[in-house]
């Protein structure tokens, strides 16, 4: 479980550093400093979170926001994002597996949004599903899975490593939760049956105290 959690795309790391180097070369010290700090915060939280199996929802969302800010920097702020958690849900109280969301968000950016022209948006919402579980959804208005798959099939046969990682983590998670966690991918269409994006629905049993596994 630890080995899987520790994964973060090296391509992402090095391109982020290149992006910061660009600000330095252009004497844009303000942005160089800003993104260097965001980048180090992200690396720190990934390092911290990869040694704990569970983090609070609040911590996980902070990590995701840093990730979104840095991906935004790499792509000239081509996309916008919003993270909404339901009123009354104490996100500092509940725990979810650390770095659970990042692979799905990465997938939404890379396979949903970057292939798209025009307005690009990611919406992450967190709410109580019932008394025993929470629902997290990651919605993008990208090109949709079908089109992304056809581009990928044309490109190569490589599977999205991030997604695979998410699934195998979920499997491990289910083993420790007794099979109550789930991930569903929903393809979204408008009234003309034209793809308008993808939504990932994750249901996680509520956990208000940390029981360290592994």
């Amino acid at each position: 479980m630890k080995a899987l959690r520790a994964q973060i795309n090296p391509h992402f790391l090095f391109n982020s550093l290149n992006s910061i180097n660009n600000f330095i070369l252009k004497n844009d010290t303000k942005n160089a400093s800003k993104y260097l700090i965001k980048f180090s915060q992200l690396v720190r939280s990934v390092l911290n979170n990869s040694s704990t199996a569970f983090v609070t929802i609040h911590e996980e969302l902070q990590t995701i926001e840093l990730y979104l800010i840095i991906e935004g920097m790499r792509f000239g702020n081509q996309f916008t994002y919003k993270i909404i958690s339901e009123d009354g849900l104490n996100i500092k109280l509940f725990y979810i597996p650390s770095l659970l969301l990042q692979p799905y968000v990465e997938n939404a950016i890379w396979h949903g949004l970057l292939h798209k022209e025009g307005e690009k948006h990611i919406l992450i919402t967190i709410k109580k599903n019932n008394e025993k579980s929470i629902a997290i959804s990651i919605l993008d208005n990208g090109i949709g899975r079908e089109m992304a798959a056809s581009i990928k099939a044309k490109k190569d046969k490589q599977k999205s490593f991030g997604m695979k990682l998410g699934e195998s983590r979920l499997r491990l998670l289910n083993e420790s939760y007794g099979g109550n966690a789930s991930v569903n991918v929903v393809d979204l269409y408008d009234s003309m049956k034209i793809p308008i994006g993808t939504r990932i629905d994750i249901i996680i049993p509520l956990k208000s105290n940390v029981i360290e596994s592994n």
């Binding site: 391109n15 660009n22 070369l25 792509f75 970057l114």
Partner: peptide
């Protein structure tokens, strides 16, 4: 390069 900042860095250095 798909990332504009990578193009810019190379341009500056070259």
């Amino acid at each position: 390069d798909d990332e504009q900042h990578c193009i810019e860095v190379l341009e500056i250095l070259l």
